[in-house]
């Protein structure tokens, strides 16, 4: 009987390995064709749809086909970086508020209210961004920022339509902040009371105690949840698809520029790629998926490793 459970468990584990291996096989011809140019060029062109396929390096491709995803890598990394830079401090500060300023009886439900941000579906975030956030940012916030913060690098220049890098970063930050808040809050609440009381008895104020005694104890939880949040932001699809502007072959010039991310690019380009009679466009898109998979596996492994180290029989991470 034990073997049956072991076999089923192995099947679950095998799915992840199967997905990564599958994309590697699927993308193999594209990997051979594109080489390192795939990562260093920023032109994605599936070629002339009605041209006769030509032979390049022993593979059939459409004339003019060129696959480079530098603009996607830049868009993905920059939007994630903005999201993490905003979400970690806000998440930690909000966690402190929840752990220290809210009575324990209310804490569960007050925390639940803000942490519900994690349960809101990605496409609803996209809708909210599309209807409320983008008009507000484009009309009021971005012009003000460009006028008053324009002296900072990349904050000046044309503010565009509101679809773009900063908008994506802001919405991604809201989507990942509950991960940080709930982890750090739990870690703060779990701190031994003796340490805190000792610091207070020595004359430290509540905030000094928090900063010098309680927060350092949550450092690993903070780092782990921040990396986990990074992984979440890297792979977000629908919200980014609806608010990023879906820039093609275009590197952002300032923080208001339209961008595209790897995950949202797969959605927006798969239909078009399927029209390629040589099939190379689909394989190149599989190569995008492979790169995304590998980044996500590395980032999540790092986070899990760190969190396991902290707590061997740690819980399943909440959604």
């Amino acid at each position: 009987m034990r073997r049956v459970y072991a076999a089923l468990a192995a099947l679950v584990a095998a799915i992840l390995v199967a997905i990564v291996a599958f994309f590697a096989v699927e993308a193999w011809p594209a990997i051979g064709l594109n080489g390192w140019h795939f990562l260093t060029h920023d032109v994605w062109d599936v070629g002339r749809q009605y041209g006769n396929p030509i032979l390049r390096d022993g593979r059939l491709v459409l004339p003019g086909a060129h696959y480079g995803i530098l603009f996607l890598i830049v868009g993905t990394l920059l939007s994630t970086a903005i999201a993490v830079v905003l979400a970690v401090p806000i998440g930690v500060l909000a966690a402190i508020f929840l752990a220290e300023c809210i009575p324990a009886a209310l804490r569960t439900w007050v925390s639940f209210f803000v942490e519900m941000l994690a349960a809101i579906p990605s496409v609803v975030f996209g809708l909210w961004g599309y209807i409320f956030l983008i008009p507000f940012l484009a009309r009021h916030v971005f012009p003000w920022m460009a006028a008053h913060l324009g002296f900072l690098p990349y904050f000046g220049g044309a503010t565009g339509s509101g679809y773009g890098l900063l908008t994506s970063g802001l919405v991604l930050a809201l989507m990942i902040v509950p991960l940080v808040t709930s982890t750090v809050r739990d870690a703060l609440v779990a701190q031994p009371h003796g340490l805190r009381d000792a610091a207070l008895a020595l004359g430290a104020t509540r905030f000094e105690t928090l900063r010098t005694v309680q927060l350092p104890g949550t450092r690993r939880a903070m780092t782990g949840s921040a990396i986990l949040a990074t992984g979440r932001a890297l792979g977000e699809t629908m919200a980014v698809l609806m608010i990023s502007g879906n820039a093609l072959n275009y590197l952002p010039t300032n923080i208001y520029s339209p961008i595209s991310t790897m995950a949202s690019f797969i959605v927006s380009q798969l239909d078009g790629a399927l029209q390629d009679p040589t099939g190379m466009a689909v394989r190149a898109l599989a190569e995008v998926a492979l790169v995304l998979c590998l980044i996500s596996v590395v980032v999540n492994s790092l986070a899990r490793g760190l969190l396991y180290w902290q707590d061997r029989i740690s819980s399943a991470w909440p959604a």
């Binding site: 584990a13 986990l228 699809t237 596996v297 980032v299 999540n300």
Partner: peptide, 20 residues
Amino acid sequence: TVRFLADVMVGLPSIVVGYF
């Protein structure tokens, strides 16, 4: 190993699963 792979799988972008 199973625990680790399951946890990493939670972080896999959902579009990748859809494409697979």
